[in-house]
Amino acid sequence: MSTAAKRKKKMTKENWTGLAFIAPAVLLLFVFLFIPFLLTVGYSFTNYNILKPDKMQFVGVANFLRLTKDTVFLKSIINTFVFVILVVPLQVCLGLGLALLINRKLKGISIYRLAFFAPTVLSLVVVSILWTYIYNPNNGLLNSLLGSLGIGPFKFLNDPSTAMVCIVILSAWQGCGFQMMIFLSGLQDIPAYLYEAAAVDGARKWHQFWHITIPGLKNISVFVSLNIVVSAFQLIIQPMMMTGGGPQNSTMTIVYEIYQTGFKYNKMGYGSAMALIFTLLVLILTLIQNKITSKSNED
């Protein structure tokens, strides 16, 4: 009896300490994540205009019905998915490829490491502007380069069929340095004796990569791809700086459309409805991805 009471008392004390530790994080989460999210849900059922807060009224599902007729928003959903589907494999492969390249003991390897990582540190706005110059159809670097090889010229960002691909390439280039670092640490965690044993058994480099490196990086790959998926869905800076969502809405993304509706047109209610749909889409995808990865982890 007394021991049980004692344990109970001890437990509560520990609980309080624990709670005290997570309190700041929980508080911040509430203030900056949960409350804004709940407000967004609330606003999405109103006609809230930023400049006319007094005139806010409940409008039911009118905003959501309107979304089904909004051709640009529907296009932006497709565009965003196209971007995610293209950029995730590309960026994972680039990150892994670079990690493999620099995972060796060579003189001056840290210079390469720094060089490959550098784009990640640069501001995305700066990178976007720089690549706009590179992609310039008339006197851009890329067309001059391709021209000397007898290819092109291409219109890049000025052609609706290639604009999104251009943004994919620059985004993968900009982001892969970060994934490279994570893959690198993963590579260095794989015990060297596995490779030695495989070499003794006569396994070639390719087999070693396929049967040791890839399985060894499984957990890291899951983390990396989830990371890229989530940030890829939030694509806005590149189209905003480089194309303005054009040409012909080919690079308009969901978040850009939300920003434009909410902050440029001041139509916060309608923008909130878009944001809610966007959140649900990402949520569903994350759940699916979770299910797939946890299943493959059980194997």
Partner: peptide
Amino acid sequence: YAILSNQFATTLQNILTGM
């Protein structure tokens, strides 16, 4: 006006890219 300005700019890009 903000909507108008945006549509005006979009139109320019659209016609220059073949529309």
